[in-house]
């Protein structure tokens, strides 16, 4: 296991380097003079020169990249063009709501998705199954920002049950979690159903039934446990894509997370913040994927031993 983990971590290194190359090139690829963009339209030539000097824009590109990466290793992601504060302070200060949002949404997605998927599989080809599966397809086809707005319309404006902005209290957190978790639960439901259906006709399930094991035990202990293996991978990937989806959800519900920070920074053309935020998102995603691989392996091994 440890060997596997080490191997996986080493494999990640080129990817992480590649990610830094891409975020670094963002500044280079912006059409126009980066110094001008950073200093603003009204900047004088002298001010521009100062910005170039300070950001090292006069150096050759490889030197600039080297400075960027060594800076990153020291935890230095540059400074915000607008506030002047360190990007790392801004970015890490906004991380908690985003991770919490993605985490709770994943929990909801797993919970709803598993229940719906199992019911669908057990009652396959019935009306219930069709309704659940159409619901899942619908959930997959909704833009989550629209769902968020609709929930605000019904439950905040219409009923006054929840709050439509901010993060912290359960009343604030409920709607964003539902908004972000819906598509995930749809994907997990579909995955659970199909992997349950593959398992459910296998001999050992029939044997368990023949032994007189109750249907409930057959479904939950025997079938679901084995059907879970592919589902785990999907859950892990979901957590990652929910991190990305948080960008839209945070904007709809005015949550001061990393996603909203990036959006506002793009609007304000505060590129160091965009760079830093995108980088942190990517690193988180890469490490979540490693975690999923490890989990998958552990789960698989246990089943092998059984």
């Amino acid at each position: 296991m440890l060997k596997f983990l080490m191997k996986r971590l080493i494999q990640t290194i080129p990817v992480l380097i590649g990610v830094t190359v891409l975020t670094f090139s963002m500044i280079l690829l912006i059409p126009g003079d980066p110094a001008q963009i950073i200093a603003g339209e009204a900047a004088s030539p002298a001010q521009l020169e100062l910005v170039r000097e300070r950001l090292g824009l006069n150096n050759p590109i490889p030197v600039q990249y080297w400075d960027y990466v060594t800076g990153l290793l020291r935890g230095d992601m540059g400074n915000s063009v607008r506030s002047g504060r360190a990007v790392s302070t801004e970015v890490f200060g906004r991380l908690a709501p985003t991770i919490e949002l993605a985490f709770y949404s994943t929990l909801l997605a797993v919970f709803l998705g598993l229940i719906a998927g199992v019911i669908s599989a057990v009652k396959r080809y019935s009306l219930t199954d069709s309704v659940i599966m159409f619901g899942a397809l619908f959930g997959l086809s909704m833009p989550n920002f629209w769902l968020g707005l609709m929930l605000i319309q019904w439950l905040v404006i219409g009923q006054g049950w929840f709050q439509a902005s901010g993060w912290g209290s359960p009343q604030q957190m409920f709607l964003p979690v539902v908004t972000l978790g819906t598509a995930g639960s749809a994907i997990i439901a579909r995955m659970t159903r199909s992997s349950m259906l593959e398992v459910i006709d296998m001999d050992y399930i029939q044997t368990a039934r023949a032994k007189g094991v109750s249907e409930r035990v057959v479904i939950y202990r025997h079938a679901l446990k084995n059907a879970m293996v592919p589902v785990v991978t999907v859950v892990g990937l979901q957590f990652g894509s929910l991190l990305g989806g948080a960008v839209l959800t945070e904007t709809v519900f005015a949550i001061n997370g990393l996603g909203r920070l990036i959006i506002n920074a793009i609007r304000a053309r505060d590129f160091p913040i965009v760079q830093g935020g995108v980088l942190v998102f990517a690193f988180m995603f890469v490490f979540v994927n490693i975690l999923v691989d490890v989990l998958y392996r552990l789960l698989n091994k246990r089943i092998d031993l059984n």
Partner: peptide, 21 residues
Amino acid sequence: RFMDILLAFPGILLALAVVSV
């Protein structure tokens, strides 16, 4: 490996980064 790097940006984020540039 290059594809892995592109896949390292979760969800809408890659598109967002490109469009921001």
